[in-house]
Structures are given as structure tokens and as C-alpha cells.
Simulated assay, not measured.
Amino acid sequence: MSHREGGLQRARTRRLIRQAFIELVEEKGFGDVTVGDIAGRALINRATFYRYYQDKYALVEEIFQDVISELPSGLGPAGRLSVQDRIAGWAQLFDHVDRHHRLYAALLGRRGDPWFAARLRERCVELARDRLHGVRDDISADAGQLELVLAAGLTLGAITWWLEHDRPLPARQMAEAVVRFATQGYFGALGLDVFPPGA
């Protein structure tokens, strides 16, 4: 077998493993999926699975790294942006989720894995901090942490709602809704009066 054929075989095996894993999480939930289940669904033996991954968590980590690596370049420019530029960046994020909707829905949904949601939240915080670097001098490992965590919660909440409802709105409309909410704040978005402190 040539080196090229070997590379193609490895890529094909990894693809089969990932596909089997996502199908099984959809059916059984992450907690109940075993390596034996994945190997059986992918039509490989357990030894072959272990040649590629230490366990199902290593598989999820690799999938996470591959998918998340697409995000930074796809979110548009960082810094102070117009509303339209912000919407365009968020639309790219929802387009990304749409391309990988089965994976995100399986791992973020009710049958998914809290580890994946926590890792994604951490990554959202990291991305936000990276994008604010040079725009806000006070953003460091700790400064602004609460605001970044709240923003990550908004991001995950919007993505999860969109997936759980089978993506009922186009990516652009989701982006507009998120930017409107983030701009107006919770009370403003709900049309509630906001009184100044001490009023």
C-alpha cells in the first residue's frame, strides 16, 4: 500500500468513527455510548479504534479542536465595529454551526456531554478575549472575566436554542436577534423600562 493510499485509509477510518459516534450520541446519549458501540457502528474492531483514539473523550477532543479551529478566521474583523459588521460576524458564526449542526446538536443537546458545552464556553471566552486584545487594555486573564462569561452564555444559549428548534430562522436573522439583544441588553430587548440606580 502506498503512503497516499495509507493516508486515505486513515482519513476514511477517522471519518467512519466520527460519523458512527455522532449517530450513537443522537440515539443513546453521550454517557451511554461505548467504544464497542462506536467500533461496531463504524464496522471496525476495537483495536482499530484504539489505534486512533485513547477513548471517546479523546475522540470528542479531536472533533472539538477540528471544528473550533474554523472559528477565528470566520468571524470577521475584531475591535469596534458597526452594527452591520457585527451582524455579519455573528451570521458567519451561525453559518459555521449550520455546517456542523449534527455535531453541535448531538453534543450540546440534552443527550450531549457537559464537558463539550464547558469546553465550548471556555473557547468562546478565549475568542472574545483575543478579539478584544488591543481594543481594551484592561482585558487580561482575569479582568472582564464576568462580562466575557456572560457573553459566552449568550452565545451558547442562542446556538442551543437554534439547534433544539431545528434551526427555524436563517443564520442572518439569528445574528440580528443576538446583536439586538447584546446591544439593548436584557431589559431593553424585552421592552422593560430601565431606571437609573437610586431612582
Rank of each mutant, 00 (worst) to 15 (best):
L93D: 04
F116E: 06
R102Y: 04
H96P: 02
Y104T: 04
E122F: 10
A105K: 11
E126W: 12
F116C: 14
R99P: 08
V97I: 14
H96D: 04
V125F: 01
E126D: 15
R99Y: 06
R102E: 13
L108S: 04
Y104F: 15
E122T: 11
Q92L: 00
D113I: 07
G109V: 12
P114G: 04
A105F: 03
H101S: 08
R121D: 09
G89C: 05
R119W: 09
W115P: 05
R110Y: 10
L108V: 10
R111T: 08
R121C: 10
W115F: 11
F116M: 13
V97N: 05
H101V: 00
L103C: 01
A117F: 11
H96S: 06
D98A: 07
A117P: 06
W90E: 08
R102P: 02
E126P: 06
R99H: 13
A91C: 06
R119V: 08
F116H: 11
H96C: 00
L108I: 11
H100Y: 09
F116S: 06
C124R: 01
R121H: 14
A117R: 15
F94L: 14
W115E: 15
Y104H: 12
G109I: 10
E122G: 13
W115Q: 15
R123E: 15
H101C: 01
L93K: 01
H96Y: 07
R119M: 13
A117T: 03
D113Q: 14
R119A: 14
R99C: 07
W90D: 01
W115R: 15
D95I: 04
A105Q: 09
R102K: 07
R123A: 15
Y104E: 06
R119P: 02
W90M: 03
R110W: 06
Y104N: 07
E122D: 15
Q92I: 00
F116R: 00
E122A: 13
R111A: 13
V125E: 10
W115I: 12
W90S: 07
W115L: 14
A117Q: 12
C124T: 04
H96L: 12
L107N: 10
A106Y: 09
A118E: 11
R99D: 07
R119Y: 06
W115G: 12
D113P: 03
V125K: 03
Q92F: 01
R123N: 14
R110M: 09
G109T: 10
L108K: 03
E122W: 07
A105G: 05
D113R: 10
V125N: 04
C124Q: 00
R121W: 03
W90K: 02
R119T: 10
A106F: 06
L127W: 02
E122K: 12
H100M: 02
W90F: 13
D95F: 07
R123C: 12
E122H: 10
F94H: 11
L107H: 14
V97H: 07
R121S: 13
R99K: 14
R102I: 08
V97S: 05
A117I: 03
A118V: 02
E122S: 15
A118W: 01
L127S: 02
A105E: 11
